[in-house]
Every structure is written in structure tokens, then in C-alpha cells.
Design a protein around this nucleic acid. Structure first.
Lengths: 202, 202
DNA sequence: TTTCTCTTATGATGTACATCATAATCTTCA
DNA sequence: TGAAGATTATGATGTACATCATAAGAGAAA
């Protein structure tokens, strides 16, 4: 988490985005690196026939779009505002200066990249060798581990079946059927509003 | 690339591995970080019914096993020596000291992690929304881009159909059929020894 | 030189998930 | 407040890739 003071020192500027607006497209050369000030941004890839894969969602305080920075390559996915948002943008040069002058921030970045790398490796292996239900369990375990705060009660996963599908390479109907099946197998329960309640001890 | 001098300063030690030997298993808690001194290491995941997914191969000078270091988590995949190898191992503490004292090495690590993150994101999106031939093209493009040195002649990809399958989440037979189809579509040619020759301009 | 294992190859068959169709809520926003 | 668009749901059908079977050549091992 980089303080606003430091951001200003290194000439970060704020940009605002309407809901649905695209910040950058897949393949654009990466000139800026971003931190969400307020709102929600998704990074996603699209196939020729319109299928979507969501690489991740980013909210207040989270940075995104750093990786292509270090080999001056292109963004590997597009960034779209899911809701009205504002983001800090920092140029490559200023960002490198910032890292050079702040070991703690650099280390935090390293940790963030590492954590994302573990997530991607995990999901990649799931998509490559496991089937739908297994994939969903692994994804939800990861998600709950990263978002659940209180430790005793079941966690209500704030994602629709469609969002689960978009992040696991499955289709809505498949996710719906798997979730039903996983409910019968007692991996989770379905709340009265349809949302998934993840059990505590697993 | 970290010099042997610096490695010794931070108490790195050498370990040797026979062909087929396992350095660490998926799920082991990550106490060391490694750099290949000489040989070839693969990181891979295995499903219950024995299917393999290869996350990557690492050779002389390349580091691996860093990500779980920064949140003290477990290795996300197993590391196995593909041939007789020797690796430098550095403890977490010494590694952090090393980063703190060498900005350039830290920045190089950041760049390495970023590059891997882009690779994983790319393959993840491929596995999620693209079909077999597209996946293979993307993988080979990436591979050639990272390994081809001379720029004029077609590049002979030094991987078997089985290795391609293991890295793309496909099965050998599918890879064989796809490669044949891609040959007919002029994306590549098949050498007299069966190896894939990747065309220059694509 | 023989045996074993790996690699490329090809056909027949099976299946997990996608796709298509339809519908009953629920939410959004105009 | 009423229409449009999500969301969850369920059945019927389609298909890309996996699986199984078999084989021929190449290299390694003994």
C-alpha cells in the first residue's frame, strides 16, 4: 500500500473511469502502471468469438498492470472499470525511481507479484489437469482464503455463477450444475438468496 | 544472474541431484530458494490419477521457487531434476538480506517474476477460452521468442510432442494431430527427424 | 544383437463440458 | 412503476478432445 504522499512525490496523477470504460486494451504498449484509488477494475482476455476470461479484479489500494513494465512489453490483458472508478497512474520512469528509493515498497511489490504468480500457477494446473468441480473448489478455497476476515462463521462468497465461470474457464450452466452437486456433497451450502456459503473447516 | 561471489557472501550452498530426483514436493513449506548451477530442473503438478502439468523448465543460471518465499506459504508445484544437476540453495533470511543490499538483483528478480506472470496469464487465458491449435501456436510463439537467438533461419523447437502436451494441458495424440494440421496450414514445417521447424515471420 | 523404452503416428470410440432452448425470479434504471 | 437485463435453473443435444488400441522406427541399455 503506497501512501498518497509518496504517490504525489513521484508525480502520480489521478484518472477517472465511468462504469464499463476501458483503461487499456490487450496488446497496448505499457506506459503506465496503476493503483486503484477508488472503485473496481477487472483485467480480462477475450477470444475472437467473444468468450471472456477474467484474470482478476482489483479494488481500492491494489495495483495492476506492472508486469509488462519490466521488459517493456505489452499489456497481457485489457483493463475495464466494473463500476465508476478512479486510478492513480505512474509512468515507468517515476515508478523505477520510486522502487529504487523505497526498499519496503519494492519488497511489497515483489510479494504481490509472487502471490499472483502462485495464484496463476495454481489455476493453470487446475485448468490443465483437473475437472470442473475440482477447479471450482480450488478457486473458492483460494478466494475465501484471501477475502474472509472473521474466522468462525461460513463465508458468503460475493460472486455470481457467471463471475465464477469467467474466472475458471467454465460456462455458467456448468458452474450452476457443479455448485448444486457440491452442495449435495456437503462442500458448501446455498443461501436463501442463492449465494454460496463456504464451510469453515476445509 | 547472481555472481558466485555474491552467492557465497550470502551463505548459499550447493546441492547435487541425480536424474529423476525430487528437490521438493508440492505443498512442502518453502524454506529455500534455488538457482540452477548446472543441469535442468522441472517444476510440475500432478493430479490424483497421475496426469502431469509442467509449469516450467529451469537451466543454468535460472532461479526458481521464490514466490512462496514472500508470504511464507508452500511450494505450488514439485521440483524434479530432469538430468543430473546441481543447484544453489539460499535460506529465506539470507535471500532477503541479499535483496536489501543489491537493488539491481532485486530489480532483476522483479523483472523475472513479471515475465513469468505474463507467461502464466497468457497460458491461463489460452486454456480457459481457446482451443488446442490456438494454444499450441501461442505456446510455441512464446517459446521461440524466448529461446531463438539467430533471427533469420527457422527455429527447430527442441521439445517432444509429449513435452508440448505436458505444458499446454493437452494429450500427446492431440498434439501430434494438431502439429500435423498446423503443418498443412503452413504455420510450421516438420523436419526429417520429426522435430518442429518454426517459421520466421509470424 | 537383442530387449526395452521413448517417440511419432493413426484409427475407433467415449465423455465431460459446451451449446442451445426455455423459464422463473430478481435487480436495475429510466 | 414498468421494461430490460441479470441471475439461477433445468433439460436436450452437440462436439472437441480424451481415451484406448495398435504399430513402426529410433535410441538407450544390457
Amino acid at each position: 500500500m503506497i501512501s498518497e504522499d509518496i504517490l504525489r512525490t513521484f508525480h502520480a496523477s489521478l484518472a477517472t473511469l465511468e462504469k464499463g470504460e476501458t483503461l487499456f486494451h490487450y496488446g497496448d504498449s505499457a506506459v503506465y502502471f496503476y493503483i486503484v484509488h477508488h472503485g473496481k477494475i477487472k483485467m480480462a482476455n477475450y477470444s475472437d468469438d467473444g468468450r471472456e476470461f477474467v484474470q482478476g479484479y482489483f479494488t481500492d489500494g491494489q495495483s495492476f498492470g506492472e508486469p509488462p513494465f519490466f521488459q517493456k512489453s505489452a499489456y497481457p490483458a485489457s483493463a475495464i472499470a466494473v463500476e465508476k472508478s478512479s486510478v492513480w497512474k505512474i509512468s515507468r520512469e517515476n515508478f523505477l525511481k520510486l522502487l529504487k528509493n523505497n526498499f519496503d515498497i519494492h519488497l511489497e511489490l515483489t510479494a504481490t507479484l509472487s502471490s499472483r504468480l502462485i495464484y496463476k500457477s495454481t489455476m493453470l494446473s487446475e485448468l490443465a489437469i483437473e475437472e470442473a468441480e475440482h477447479r471450482l473448489i480450488t478457486f473458492m478455497q483460494y478466494f475465501v482464503g484471501n477475502n474472509k476476515t472473521e474466522s468462525s462463521k461460513p463465508y458468503k462468497i460475493p460472486l455470481t455463477r457467471q463471475q465464477l465461470a469467467d474466472m475458471t474457464g467454465l460456462r455458467v450452466e456448468t458452474v450452476i450444475r457443479c455448485i448444486k452437486s457440491l452442495e449435495q456433497k456437503k462442500f458448501l451450502t446455498i443461501n436463501s438468496d442463492g449465494k454460496i456459503l463456504w464451510k469453515v473447516f476445509q
